[in-house]
Write a protein that binds this DNA or RNA. Structure first.
Lengths: 196, 196
DNA sequence: GCCTAAGTACACAGGTCTGTGTAACCAAAA
DNA sequence: TTTTGGTTACACAGACCTGTGTACTTAGGC
């Protein structure tokens, strides 16, 4: 109940600050000095908690890998709510795209560790969609799940360069069409919600 | 007709090499020394043609901004061919995502020049889709064009981390559903092509 | 009081990067 | 032949980066 009284452990404080700076300004753009200075600790302390910057980067990405919480709302609603959530995040001024895609783009294909966690994350998202679609009895849940993640990642990439939250709404509309086409009932054709 | 006898001007040779290295390994990952060494020229020569690395980066992105060639094929075919082309590029092992998205991700939101050209590029793609859709008589061509670019950028982002050309096919299938839903005739429902 | 663990301050090695300065070179034009 | 423009070789300044070494301080547990 009570809000956490402030960052607890030193390690967590480092990770929080690294997260903020890496995500907003880029991994390569931020040096360990900058992170230490931001917290007000010495660089030595940082290196006492993480053996290298690479380890810190890995920990940063792992911490970003939050699994979706279970929900008791109907699956179709959950799926569409994903896009509403995206739109809210786009509107926040501290949104800077997908940290995993950004890390792969920044660090290049040579960095196997980063690529591995990025793949795991993307796959977890796809599987989440697939499971919701299976609950809905969709025939080819695998294929449709892939199409939905394309819309998610597409809107993220577009918003990254255009700063336009409308991309999330566009993705949601497209998702509705795809779902309807697969026989899923999504609060209908501009009418249903109002006449409920 | 005759193939160009080899890179012509010094400037063009520099740009070609910068393109290859920037795109495949990342802008931040490649130093001007590396580019000069790859061509076999001195760093001084490079700086005689471009006043700064930033100028070289800008020139690299501008050179990547190739406008789509006009085509006389039917618009619907042109649109779907986009995804076939994507799939071919994904399959090539030297594909590394969208250079504009990558540049924005790498260089951060502070770099206005890069962001500007990235926005211009994305918009040009969207407008291209919109114009094809208008030719087809689609009612809300603007909205559908946006949805199609989401599929394009989504498949690019997914392929960047997963190296899976199937993402392009998935995008194409989704595009077909969206087009059909907008009243566009796309070589039909698994049957038409075989019976046509 | 004493000991240990954690953090601090700070210097520094060794690397990379961008960008410049300088003198020599070479080929083609005048 | 002389001049000129592009090029080379190479050193270097100045910045920034990762990572380490070292001696000092501080706070808690015993």
């Amino acid at each position: 109940m009570a809000p956490p009284p402030a960052p607890q452990t030193m390690k967590e404080r480092i990770l929080q600050t690294a997260d903020k700076l890496f995500y907003l300004q880029g991994i390569r753009a931020i040096g360990v000095d900058t992170i230490a200075a931001e917290i007000g600790i010495s660089k030595r302390t940082l290196y006492n908690h993480f053996p290298s910057k690479d380890a810190l980067i890995a920990a940063y990405l792992e911490r970003r890998f939050v699994h979706a919480r279970p929900s008791d709302k109907p699956p179709a609603e959950q799926i569409l709510a994903t896009f509403d959530s995206l739109e809210r995040r786009f509107a926040a001024k501290d949104f800077r795209g997908c940290p995993f895609v950004n890390a792969v783009a920044e660090l290049g294909p040579a960095d196997r560790a980063v690529k591995k966690i990025a793949i795991a994350f993307k796959e977890s998202r796809r599987v989440w969609f697939r499971d919701r679609l299976t609950e809905l009895g969709v025939a080819d849940a695998e294929a449709l799940a892939t199409q939905l993640v394309l819309l998610v990642d597409g809107s993220i990439a577009q918003d990254l360069v255009r700063d336009d939250p409308a991309m999330a709404r566009a993705a949601k509309e497209a998702a509705k069409v795809l779902l309807r086409n697969a026989g899923v009932d999504v609060g209908d054709e501009k009418v249903a919600k109002k006449r409920g």
